[in-house]
Design a binder for these strands. Structure first.
Length: 821
RNA sequence: GGGGAAGUGGCGGAACGGUAGACGCAGCCGCCUCAAAAGCGGCCGGGCAACCCCCGUGAGGGUUCGAGUCCCUCCUUCCCUACCA
């Protein structure tokens, strides 16, 4: 036997050659249709595992397919390099975050290259480089100028032990993830981005995103949480204070039997009665330290009477004002009217605190005197509601709103669940926020020509307090306006800031004058296919849309005001049915697999196990089949290698034998599958790889019977073209050894040929009353009459019909004949 | 509590409303070999002695000439989201 396929040598050879020849360099070319293929920017955690590999195998197959289908493909890669793990490494074992991150990037970049991915490495970006994050700062200043970045006090998660602010995801069951102390809520001054100003557009434009998974759009819709209602005020008895509430159920206004306010509500301390003050203060104090999650999800509804009463603006009834844990200070007005009969939460609260319920909306004919077991949540007809009695809920909402407007007590109002994006982090490893505080001038933005504000090196990172605030060399500066002494902002940016616009920097990564050139962006944007996990369905993908709309409003980008046309969420890769994680110690890294089985086999396996959107299980046996496939391909082609070209894959040979025709058909079925799965954007390459199996099975079979058949030579010469996007190294090696001097990856893909796909005989299924009784091998296009004549000659068909009257015949051309008797 | 996706051989999975189980993994039998590995050929949902035939896509109903596929009810699993007034 000739030499076995040496995947190690071949894979290395082609990776080197693609690199040297810049095979996948992307250039603007107005003559060609562009295609922007992008996988989500990875965090450089240190090692590439098969989960990443699945993502990149898919993205790379798509990019290579589109390139071979004639598109001008841009396919870049980079590193989301700021973030907490680097700082944790510093705290845990004194690593320098910068060195630690760079070492990780170096290793992961090596591994991504090891996969043989067709990235244009000249566009690689690393977000912790000053060349990148200076544009973060620049963009922040533009947001600031437009009033979209602002500072205000906000409740944050504060760990009293570590003296630091925690992100929501670092609070586990109300405790600090690191020291496990109970987290407190503190009001601290924080930077926000006014994403809420774009809430309506972000919501409405979801309609346009028909290339996105419906569930992702739904999640964004829910996250934005637009709700239409009314805001109006209750007067407080014996006080000048007024309490504003928001409701979507104005029709239940006459059923309000109490008023509930959040513990942080500013009027609480003003209206509480002397008798209740101590108890209320104690209650508020006990909640102060509780996070929102704890209050709302983990605790029972609790509350305490303030002693004060409010007056219902229309019924003029006197209702008690309670402080409760279930009203959120951050949503609406921080106060709600309590309507136990028509809101389940209010119902539970009222029952617990012996507050009355008043039914004011009922379905027609309902017995309203019966005691309630739960709130009645539906619309109905109003009862016991003054002038509004008898109206439908919908009409009453309008009429009551009109009345409140007329009395100048309220107005229609739209509220959002979406809140402004808190972007400041009291951390070191991030982009410094380019703001200076001057004693005389106050808050001063750093002028553009002084960017970047460099992140200082050698700052002690202890996990206590803000590292930058504790560094006088960084903190002390002079005011850009008056030159007087000033302090720098010591907070850094949320890393989602970087990833909200990186896809634009890829297009023009070395521009030192601006973040990107608009003309270049005009050519490449929007992203035609974005691939990444569903875990980013809301945050990253919503922030990116927000930024892009802001850019669009500035005319920095043109065309559509959505950055991502089509989105695909690949499924996770499990191992032994479990999510891979470092803590479980079950992470399958790619180095060993690549070494032992080869990259092409790994890529083929990851595409083959499941449809790409499904969760797949890594198995050590499963890849065997793909290793065999790679070797079979090599052996099938071997007799033709290093010889003169014996066939042209663009010229279909004339053959006569059935198995020769079947082979030509298998070739084109596989090609058609690859093209269809790509252009339909279904990307079910698992079925394409199955058809490659059938192709190679047919090839090896015919090769044994008729090694000199032109069909064999043709199938061998077409094979590298067809497998190129899926097994790129093997493909280029075969292509070269079959006598070509240029890479297969810049060739046109094999165009599926109808002549090869056509079949000479089909199996027509004959059913009697829906059950299969015979199968006929006939020429395609057979008429119903001819088929019927053949069918009734079949003994099993005759037996079933047995003189019965034929009532109906169902004929599906080239498929089936159903005789109903 | 709300929203979404999905239930097909031992396993991963195929299947425009029209031959269920393509293709592969694992397993079994055979060939090759002194032997093993690799490779090649075959078998591989259940019932039956059986190539006939019958049953079979989570359960039950429905629509249809015909349902894994469409509709309704239920069960199970997974993911997301949770007091947003």
């Amino acid at each position: 036997m000739a030499d076995a396929y040496d995947y190690r040598a071949v894979e290395q050879k082609w990776q080197q050659r693609w690199d040297e020849q810049a095979t996948f360099r992307a250039r603007e070319d107005v003559e060609k249709q562009k295609y922007y293929a992008l996988e989500m920017l990875p965090y450089p955690s240190g090692d590439l595992h098969v989960g990443h590999a699945k993502n990149y195998s898919l993205g790379d197959a798509i990019a290579r397919m589109m390139r071979m289908l004639g598109y001008n493909v841009i396919h870049p890669m980079g590193w989301d390099a700021f973030g907490l793990p680097a700082e944790n490494a510093a705290i845990a074992h004194g690593a320098d975050p910068d060195k630690w991150t760079r070492a990780n990037i170096a290793n992961m970049q090596r591994q991504v290259r090891l996969m043989g991915t067709s990235y244009d490495w000249s566009r690689e970006i690393t977000t912790c480089e000053p060349e990148y994050y200076r544009w973060n700062q620049w963009l922040f200043l533009r947001l600031y100028e437009h009033g979209l970045a602002y500072k205000r006090e906000a409740p944050v998660n504060w760990c009293p032990h570590d003296h630091t602010v925690l992100a929501n995801e670092q609070v586990i069951d109300g405790r600090c993830w690191r020291c496990e102390h109970l987290v407190e809520r503190r009001n601290l001054s924080q930077w926000f981005l006014k994403i809420t100003e774009y809430a309506d557009r972000l919501l409405d434009d979801l309609e346009k995103l028909d290339g996105w998974p419906e569930r992702t759009r739904t999640m964004q819709r829910n996250w934005i949480g637009r709700s239409e209602g009314a805001q109006f005020t209750f007067a407080v008895e014996n006080s000048e204070e007024r309490i504003s509430v928001f409701t979507t159920r104005l029709d239940t206004l006459f059923g309000a039997t109490y008023l509930a306010v959040a513990p942080e509500h500013p009027t609480v301390s003003k209206i509480v009665t002397k008798k209740q003050r101590a108890a209320v203060e104690q209650f508020v104090q006990s909640l102060r330290s509780k996070s929102e999650l704890e209050r709302t999800s983990l605790m029972e509804k609790e509350g305490i009477f303030t002693g004060a009463y409010a007056i219902n603006p229309l019924s003029h009834e006197r209702v008690p004002i309670w402080v409760t844990n279930y009203v959120l200070a951050e949503y609406g007005t921080g106060a709600v009217m309590g309507v136990p009969a028509h809101d389940q939460r209010d119902f539970e609260f009222a029952r617990k605190n012996a507050l009355p319920a008043a039914m004011v909306v009922a379905p027609p004919g309902a017995d309203v005197s019966a005691p309630l077991n739960e709130a009645f949540l539906e619309d109905g007809r109003l009862i016991a509601s003054g002038d509004f009695t008898g109206m439908s809920s919908a009409r009453a909402r309008k009429a009551i709103a009109d009345r409140l407007v007329a009395l100048a007590l309220g107005e229609p109002k739209v509220n959002y669940r979406l809140r402004d994006w808190l972007v400041s982090r009291q951390r070191y490893w991030g982009t410094p926020i380019p703001i200076v505080y001057c004693e005389k001038c106050g808050e001063v933005p750093v002028p553009d020509d002084q960017l970047p504000v460099l992140l200082p090196a050698d700052v002690p990172i202890t996990g206590e307090g803000s590292p930058l605030a504790n560094d006088p060399a960084f903190s002390n500066t002079t005011c850009p306006t008056c030159g007087g002494p000033a302090k720098r902002e010591s907070d850094t940016m949320d890393t989602f800031f970087e990833s909200s616009w990186y896809y634009l920097r890829y297009l023009d990564p070395h521009n030192s004058g601006k973040p990107w050139d608009q003309e270049i962006a005009r050519y490449w944007m929007p992203i035609d296919q974005y691939i990444g996990g569903a875990e980013h369905a809301v945050l990253h993908l919503l922030y990116s849309r927000f930024f892009y709309k802001f850019f669009h409003d500035r005319a920095w980008v043109t065309g559509a005001d959505e950055p991502i046309t089509r989105l695909f969420h690949q499924g996770m890769v499990l191992y032994n049915g479990e999510k891979m994680s470092k803590s479980r110690g079950n992470v399958i890294g790619i180095d060993e697999i690549v070494e032992r089985r080869g990259v092409d086999a790994m890529r083929l396996f990851l595409l083959y196990v499941t449809p790409p959107e499904d969760t797949s299980d890594w198995t050590d046996e499963g890849i065997n089949g793909r290793v065999r496939f790679v070797n079979r391909v090599w052996r099938a082609c071997e007799p033709f290698l290093a010889r003169a070209r014996q066939a042209d894959p663009r010229a279909l040979p004339q053959v006569s034998a059935d198995d020769e025709k079947a082979l030509l058909r298998a070739v084109h079925v596989a090609a058609k599958s690859a093209v269809d799965e790509t252009l339909s954007r279904r990307f079910h390459y698992n079925t394409t790889v199955a058809k490659l199996d059938e192709y190679v099975n047919a090839l090896t079979t015919l090769e044994q019977r008729a090694p000199d058949s032109p069909a064999v030579a043709y199938a061998v010469h077409a094979l590298p073209l067809i497998i190129a996007p899926f097994a790129p190294h093997l493909a280029d090696e075969l292509w070269e050894q079959l006598g070509h001097t240029t890479t297969v990856h810049l060739e046109r893909y094999l165009e599926p040929d109808e002549r090869a796909l056509a079949v000479e005989s089909i199996t027509l299924v004959v059913q009697v009353n829906g059950k299969i009784r015979a199968r006929l091998d006939v020429a395609p296009g057979i008429s119903e009459d001819d088929a019927y004549a053949l069918a009734i000659a079949q003994p099993p068909v005759q037996a079933q019909l047995d003189g019965k009257e034929i009532r109906k015949k169902i004929f599906v051309a080239d498929k089936l004949l159903n005789i109903v008797a």
